[in-house]
Design a protein around this nucleic acid. Structure first.
Length: 459
RNA sequence: GCGCCGUUGGUGAAGUGGUUAACACGCUAGUUUGUGGCACUAGUAUGCGUGAGUUCGAUUCUCACACGACGCCCCA
């Protein structure tokens, strides 16, 4: 049997509906913030990621899908979204557009050649956004608020925003040196990994799980102490804007992000739900003022965010968030003989075009099996087509909730179903249909509404 | 790249170096029920991840590989 590739997933059934729904929420919220959708290729020149990621090229070569195409071109399956967007920004001269900053969002698959584990696959889907051409701290805050609001709109509650500032290049370098100087005398008190990290990427020592409780780590110099005045001022501005937007956050000096094109604001949003594996960061981002220039574009300050869809969906599941996903069908048509079957084909066609979700039997099940199938599909109505009824131009419809049966003339069937399916929906759920167009603060949907003005009659 | 555990039918799974691989659910058919959802009866894997080895004989032991799960490294 041919199996799927390691670390790749088939998403189907109910789970696929969740993914699609999440997409619609992302689109809706991006639209409110006026980010426009951008689609860039999944394959890019290998060089894009090497240069884009700077001196941590070993990540790219070790953990990306690189190959040569038939023309001998060096190709890489994109491991993240930012580099492609920046490439496109430069190539399409978006910096020349008077409409600045350029605000775009993407949503697509990325590929990383890694060992799969909880919350980490080889093929992953990420959405993210980038603001190119703004150095305003408001942009940093806006990106964070946008991310938070997408999570909020989906119904996630247990999230935590961690922010930090790495400062500008000058601050960052000073800090790096200070860290090395601080850790060097204590090097043997740290774990093996940290000993290696000291030269390679000292900032990551702060993020070490093994040494997390080590006093040496706790007393290590903080990035914030090494910010120059301008950088500190900038970081405070970001916090001011977040406060104004009422976005809760925490300053966490151990947030350093892996790649060194980041400067100033960096942030991560983590899920705080029980049951997440060790990878509980839903998404992260930050400011990357040097990247456009590194890729031969004009000096352009940017800030962005990216979020893995897989982890997001997992968080929704673990929190048991209720999503407005269509379950079940409107009507199942049952039949016994060929004449009735043909009528089922005809009726299904008519009713589907009229907007109903209609199913019938395709596997030759006996009537009993067809009823079972209708139950499995959670059919709101069943209808056993019967030659005699059909000759009388009528049909027997059974409501599977009330168990009541009615004989309906075929002429009014569509009208009848329309009436039933719409009115009964209100009886069944505590659903409020108001659009918030009056004083009521509810936003519609399934909830208990306490408003007198509302159409819904729930207390 | 490293480590640990796992891989048995449509599903959840039990189990053994040796004729017919538990049990449950599901599914199919039948009986009964005024056309199903209950009950009863019957049927439902020549198969235990792939390959090789040990053995008279392996699903059960050994090794390799693949895949899955989790963790480390790394994390864009």
């Amino acid at each position: 049997m041919i199996q799927r590739q390691k670390g790749c997933n088939d998403i189907f059934g109910r789970e696929a509906k969740v993914w699609k729904y999440v997409d619609t929420v992302i689109d809706a919220m991006m639209e409110k913030y006026n980010y426009t959708y951008i689609r860039t290729p999944i394959i890019e020149a290998t060089e894009l990621f090497h240069r884009g990621i700077g001196d941590t090229t070993d990540i790219v070569t070790k953990e990306s899908y690189d190959f040569e195409d038939k023309g001998g071109r060096k190709i890489t399956l994109r491991p993240e979204g930012t580099a492609g967007v920046v490439r496109s920004f430069i190539e399409n001269k978006m910096y020349g557009d008077p409409n600045q900053p350029v605000k775009v969002y993407y949503n697509g698959t990325m590929y990383r050649y890694e060992r799969p584990q909880s919350g980490r696959d080889r093929e992953l889907t990420q959405f993210g956004m980038e603001v190119l051409g703004s150095d305003d701290p408001l942009s940093d805050a806006e990106v964070i608020s946008l991310a938070v609001n997408i999570y909020k709109m989906l119904g996630l509650k247990e999230i935590k925003v961690n922010i930090n500032s790495l400062g500008d290049t000058e601050s960052r370098l000073r800090y790096r040196e200070a860290l090395i100087k601080y850790f060097k005398p204590h090097i043997h008190e740290l774990c093996e990994d940290c000993q290696e990290r000291l030269e390679k990427n000292p900032l990551r020592i702060l993020d070490c799980k093994v040494d997390a409780e080590n006093e040496i780590l706790k007393r290590a110099p903080r990035t914030l102490e090494y910010l120059n005045d301008e950088s500190r001022d900038r970081f405070e501005k970001v916090q001011d804007y977040l406060d104004i937007m009422q976005i809760p956050y925490e300053i966490n000096p151990s947030i350093v992000r892996g790649l060194d094109y980041y400067n100033h604001t960096v942030f991560e949003i983590e899920a705080k739900v029980e049951g997440f594996g060790s990878n509980n960061v839903l998404g992260g981002g930050g400011r990357y003022n040097g990247l456009v220039q590194q890729l031969d574009g004009p000096e352009t300050p940017c800030v962005g965010f990216a979020c893995g869809l897989g982890r997001l969906v997992k968080a929704l599941e673990l929190e048991e968030v209720k999503l407005p996903i269509q379950e079940g069908i409107d009507l199942f048509l049952l039949y016994v003989n060929e004449e009735e079957k043909q009528y089922a084909a005809y009726l299904a066609q008519e009713l589907r075009l009229a907007g109903f979700i209609v199913e019938t039997e395709y596997t030759g099940r006996a009537l009993k099996g067809q009823f079972k199938q209708a139950d499995r599909l959670n059919a709101r109505y069943t209808c056993v087509l019967n030659s005699e009824d059909l000759n009388n131009n009528e049909v027997k419809i059974k409501d599977n909730r009330t168990k009541e049966e009615e004989i309906i003339s075929l002429d009014v069937l569509i009208y009848y179903l329309d009436e039933k399916l719409n009115t009964n929906a209100d009886d069944e759920y505590d659903e409020c249909h108001c659009q918030g167009d009056h004083d009521c603060h509810c936003e519609g949907g399934e909830h208990e509404c306490h408003c007198e003005e509302c159409e819904c009659e729930k207390e």
